[in-house]
Amino acid sequence: MTHDVQLGMPSLPAPDYPAEVRERLAADAKEVIERYPDSRSALLPLLHLVQAEEGHVTRTGLRFCAETLGLTTAEVTAVATFYTMYRREPGGEYQVGVCTNTLCAVMGGDAIFEGLRRHLGIGNGDTTPDGKITLEHVECNAACDFAPVVMVNWEFFDNQTVESAKALVDDLRAGRGADPTRGAPLCTFRETSRILAGFPDPRPGAVEASGGAGPASLAGLRLAKGEHPPRVGPPRRAPAQGDGPAPHHEEGEG
């Protein structure tokens, strides 16, 4: 991914938010700052907050964080560029992250990423021309027992295949939405960023969505209760009847 490297004259100070935006964000920021004994601790949530406003962390957003917390823009920029979840350029409505750390990669993550790259015709970090999908490699997301894993706007799509991942992005591009295997029905990247800033998801049913623990999380408990698993798992084409939708069951490419 390339980032602006500007030589020569420094750029002019970033423009401010329009007054009404600034006022709204200032009220949110005050609420965030009150959660901490020291205001600087609010910086990471505030960066999520400005990302929720514009879809990525803009120079205006950096300026807002700096002025709100009494820091220099250099101090804020140093932090914003350290963490991978802050976008430095505009991205899609849905961030599709394929885990390609070793275990997921070996179990099929590499094939899934390559399949999506060809299917969407974009590379790592790029966004489809319709502005819907940004495709990314992601690192281990603490779901190795559900490998291979795809994250969309940081919701879990477990046990994916090349075909299921292609169907998933097709659904997203067509506006059909998608329900994660663990998580709530997808909201936009900007809405997700607001939750990350510490503002609970306002949608009714979002907390309950997809039900309790995923099947792998219950593997040991079921064994301990005397429910012996078959040596071989059930075929993917026979979705269990459960309380959440299971949108993508297609088999992988052999």
Binding site: F146, N159, A213
Partner: peptide, 21 residues
């Protein structure tokens, strides 16, 4: 051959757990 290591390498009957939660 990396395709031999995938979840689906030996056919769908060996995929481990059902997708749905």
């Amino acid at each position: 051959d990396p395709s031999k290591s995938t979840l689906w390498a030996d056919g769908p009957q060996n995929s481990h757990l059902e997708v749905n939660a």
